[in-house]
């Protein structure tokens, strides 16, 4: 006899609310949670950076911070208003494309940020285009040949890569491909109006670095997901039906593992966006990560806030997508009783 159903201990009303009735409801609630998370994150970012010690006006004026000057600047920046009101105004502005003005250059942040966001997304997209299919193929192959020389080699290599900081991978590639072989430029200098071929050549090393880093993570997680599924009783049944390993992995395991694997892919894409900060710095690639690092160094808070918001949107979006897709691909939920 199966053990009797356990009483709900601890009670999880949230669980019931989320999984209670149907997939549409779950997806809807997951999207709602994503939006709420985004709102709370932006509030924390904004209010956190505003309320912590240090006054923006004093920071801007630096040496010339006489009390009169500070008071004047505070008024012009709207710093006399309560912080929640300034947050609402800021968020309202952001929603209309007005991200405020940079303290460092005085230019509107939107004009600084948007081209760079485009550069970063282009870099990430190129890396993803190579890394995702390659990682899935290699991950599946690695699982197919578990324990054999090829699998061991790919495991050792990928462990090595994920143990390295991104900048080591980047500099390694520069030394070999740029300094010694002279095949590719070591700087990822791109500018508006650049021809696509030249642009791609300049971006080759950053793309390659990002690809390698994400590839290693994705490959390992794909392999682990498939192998974890290998222990399921239905796999033993499939073997007892006389099926071979290839058929078992492709026809039996993949339909079950597709949800988790898609989640793995999206989580790694999200990771890639953060990893881009370091890679952009290594190659002096004009992306949003480099903008953020510059702004932090110069303590240009409005720019930092705007960059943080953009990263949060990308990250929360991909995470929400991962949750929703993992669910959509769950066979038990897709075909309800």
């Amino acid at each position: 006899m199966a053990p009797a159903a356990r009483p709900g201990w601890p009670p999880e009303p949230l669980h019931l609310l989320l999984y209670g009735s149907g997939m549409a409801r779950f997806i809807f609630s997951r999207l709602a949670i994503g939006l709420v998370t985004l709102f709370v994150v932006s509030a924390l970012f904004y209010l956190g950076t505003e309320m912590l010690p240090g006054d923006v006006a004093t920071a801007i004026l630096g040496q010339s911070a006489t009390p009169a000057n500070v008071a004047k600047l505070r008024l012009s920046l709207g710093l006399d208003q309560p912080s929640w009101l300034r947050f609402v105004n800021w968020l309202w502005g952001c929603l209309h494309g007005d991200l405020g003005k940079s303290l460092a250059s005085g230019r509107p942040i939107a004009t600084l940020l948007l081209p760079r966001l485009g550069n970063t997304l282009f870099l990430a997209a190129c890396a993803a285009l190579i890394a995702v299919p390659l990682a899935l193929t290699l991950g599946i192959l690695s699982a197919l040949h578990e324990g054999k020389a090829t699998d061991r080699a790919s495991s050792a290599l990928s462990l090595g890569i994920i143990s390295m900081p991104e900048f080591l991978v980047g500099y390694g590639l520069i030394i070999v491909l740029s300094v010694h072989l002279g095949w590719l430029p070591s700087l990822g200098t791109v500018f508006p109006g650049m021809a696509l071929g030249l642009r791609l050549k300049a971006m080759a090393l950053p793309i390659l670095t990002l690809t390698l880093v994400v590839l290693a993570h994705m490959l390992r997680m794909t392999r682990a997901t498939i192998l974890a599924e290998m222990a399921a009783p239905y796999v033993e049944m499939a073997r007892l039906k006389g099926l071979d390993r290839r058929r078992i992995i492709l026809a039996h395991i993949l339909p079950n593992a597709s949800g988790p694997i898609i989640a793995v892919v999206l989580l790694n894409l999200a990771y890639m966006v953060a990893g881009a900060v370091v890679v952009e710095t290594v190659f002096v690639y004009p992306g949003i990560g480099q903008l953020l690092v510059d702004a932090v160094t110069k303590r240009d808070l409005p720019t930092v806030q705007a960059c943080g918001l953009v990263f949060a949107i990308v990250y929360v979006g991909l995470n929400t997508g991962a949750d929703v897709l993992a669910l959509v691909f769950n066979p038990r939920l897709r075909h309800r009783r």
């Binding site: 010690p53 932090v296 808070l301 930092v304 949060a312």
Partner: peptide, 21 residues
């Protein structure tokens, strides 16, 4: 915790360091 984890550690760390030095 979910809210904090919704953003990459590196980004949050950069924001905190921007404020606190």
């Amino acid at each position: 915790v979910n809210v904090i984890m919704a953003v990459p550690v590196l980004i949050v760390a950069l924001m905190v360091l921007a404020v606190l030095g």
